[in-house]
């Protein structure tokens, strides 16, 4: 028996919004530790890794490890039927071929349930090596989303260049070129507004705008985003989900031909 409850459906809606543009379907691996999802986008350029810890749920029970393959388009249709404040419970029997989403209104007067067919997906789990990154940048998630959106007007690629002075995002194309520099903040009233840079070695890497923009769909989950970079390895874009877990996106850099 698997049962996981969140007191506000809005969190699950935001999680789904953060992955459904990159992935058509994905396997949710459930264990007593929580829910894990790892999947590559169709083009195998990026990888999404989602962790929702069991202690972050308002109720969590998982008697036997369970892998639930879900069509994210179908899941999205179902979650649209929940109000943001509804309690949401996911339930499945052991070895079931369906999962049930139950929504309950705050006043307990409306209860809906939606049963969704599960899919058998070929899972290809990749081992992600522990890496000491040359540069780790933390910045407001909204700022990162804005930069990705603005720069994608100028080119298909963004060059991220990080030194101890700051981080520079650049794009160029037919229109011309654009550069956005962010310095490390000296003092801020609110921690979520800070830009911080931990640098061992400067890096300059090129990434596809399209994927960076897709990652920023996770912005509503977190005030801050963390970018981890080293030469010639994938960028990690991490959004922490308060009290629940995190979503990490790995993006292969573009390389000189």
């Amino acid at each position: 028996m698997f049962e996981a409850r969140l007191n506000a459906a809005t969190t699950l809606k935001k999680v789904l919004d953060a992955i459904k543009d990159l992935l058509n379907e994905a396997t949710f691996d459930c264990s007593d530790a929580g829910i894990q999802l790892q999947a590559m986008d169709n083009s195998h350029v990026s990888l999404v890794s989602l962790t929702l810890r069991s202690d972050g749920f308002d109720k969590f029970r998982c008697d036997r490890n369970l892998s639930m393959g879900m069509n994210l388009g179908s899941m999205s249709k179902i979650l649209k039927c929940a109000n943001n404040e509804d309690t949401v419970t996911m339930k499945a029997q052991d070895n079931a071929d369906t999962v049930t989403f139950m929504f309950e209104s705050q006043n307990h007067e409306k209860v809906s349930d939606y049963e969704m067919k599960l899919m058998n997906l070929d899972q290809e789990h990749l081992g992600i090596p522990e890496t000491d990154y040359s540069c780790v940048v933390r910045m407001p998630a909204m700022e990162f989303a804005r930069i990705c959106r603005d720069l994608s007007q100028f080119g298909e690629s963004v060059i991220i260049c990080c030194t101890k002075e700051g981080v520079k995002f650049s794009a160029s194309g037919d229109v011309g070129s654009a550069n956005i520099k962010l310095a490390q903040t000296s003092s801020v009233d609110k921690e979520e507004e800070a830009v911080t840079i931990e640098m061992q070695e400067p890096v300059s890497l090129t990434f596809a705008c399209r994927y960076l923009n897709a990652f920023t769909k996770a912005t509503p989950l977190s005030n801050q985003v963390q970018l981890s970079m080293s030469a010639d390895v994938p960028l990690v874009v991490e959004y922490r989900i308060p009290d629940l877990g995190h979503i990490r996106y790995y993006l292969a850099p573009k390389i000189e031909e």
Partner: peptide, 14 residues
């Protein structure tokens, strides 16, 4: 010119 690499070339299959 730059070309896009695959994420699979960086991570090992489990």
């Amino acid at each position: 010119a730059t070309k896009q690499g695959s994420i699979m070339s960086f991570f090992t299959k489990k």
